[in-house]
Amino acid sequence: MRFHNKTVVVTGAASGIGRATAILFAAEGAKVYAADIDEAGLAATAAESNGEVHTVRCDVTVCEDIKALMDRAAAETGGIDAVFNNAGAGGDMAKIDEIEPEGWDRTMHLLLRSVAFGIRYAVPHMIGRAGAAIVNTSSVAAVGPGYSPNAYAVAKAGVLHLTKTSAADLARHQIRVNAVQPGFINTNIFTTSLDVPPELEAQAKGAIAMMSQAAQPVARGGQPRDIAEAVLYLCSEAASFVNGTSIIVDGGLTIGPRHSWDPEVPDLFEALRQMKAAAEAAG
């Protein structure tokens, strides 16, 4: 087992990517501290796991909660080996010319400040731990517009830069810091952000899965396990030479315009080719 007897903290572990990652870490032998504000969801995560999962209620917008989480994990096990700063939601949906300061700040606190202080309060318990690693959840939205609301995209771009600067800061402690950038993953982040009623959630997730598999070269919907596998790799010995960077896990969504990979879509020069062929045929 890659993480036998290692202590791992996962935030946002009540559902989706966080749940899948906590369960996979536990299956690989880790002592997992699964944190979220959704206590019922945390209980379901622990019940689904066949390993050691300790559930902790934690609101990552409250720095005192983050510190208490890290302190508890370290106090009960002797230290922390890996942290997955993952908790989040869609944030404020407003465009830049409509968003209010409260919505902007709420989004930044949830998606960016929480990661900064997840690192801040974990590091004292990680110094001296061989192979210590931190992974932060960014997004394909950090690549450019069109994948999310404005505030979310800015926060996730901030997570990428925070990851790089933190890797530099923590090099003296031999703590690696990397990020993962999910594409369209079939979790409840979309249905929650759009306030989809519970009775329509399964139907909405099905529609999202159908849409996503048609939007990228890999013709299937992304699943939480896809991201979990990348996170465990980044925290493992196999990634010991990987630091200050990110892995995009998006089924090829961001590789280029659709015509670059879909043979059914004409490329930019197809119209010119057809024009030339028509002229030659007429001549």
Rank of each mutant, 00 (worst) to 15 (best):
E270N: 14
N178K: 07
A141F: 06
G91K: 02
A27G: 13
G131R: 05
T77F: 13
T77N: 15
L272Y: 13
I248L: 11
A141T: 00
P257I: 13
I175Q: 05
V242A: 08
D250C: 09
H161N: 11
G183H: 04
K95C: 06
M1K: 14
R258V: 15
A207F: 12
H259I: 12
S49W: 14
G78S: 12
V53E: 00
G251R: 04
E280S: 14
A43H: 04
M126G: 14
V9F: 07
P145I: 11
P263N: 10
N186R: 08
C63T: 05
L268C: 09
N188G: 03
A157P: 04
P197R: 00
E52H: 09
G91D: 00
P149N: 12
G252R: 01
G29I: 06
P217S: 07
A142R: 08
A153H: 04
S193M: 14
E229V: 14
E237H: 11
F190C: 13
G183T: 07
L160N: 03
G79Y: 08
T163C: 12
T77S: 14
A116T: 07
Y33Q: 10
G12Q: 05
R57I: 13
A27P: 08
Q274L: 15
A281G: 11
V218M: 06
Q203H: 03
N136L: 10
R176W: 06
T254L: 00
F25E: 02
A44M: 09
Y147M: 13
G29H: 13
D250V: 07
G146N: 00
V32I: 08
T45G: 05
A13L: 04
G128M: 11
G128I: 15
F25W: 01
M93Q: 07
A281Y: 15
I175M: 07
P182I: 13
H259Y: 13
D250W: 09
F269Y: 02
R113I: 11
F117R: 01
P182T: 10
I127L: 00
V135A: 00
A202E: 15
K31N: 05
E100P: 02
A40T: 06
G128V: 15
V56P: 02
R273N: 10
G283E: 01
N150Q: 03
S193D: 03
T254M: 05
A141N: 10
A230W: 06
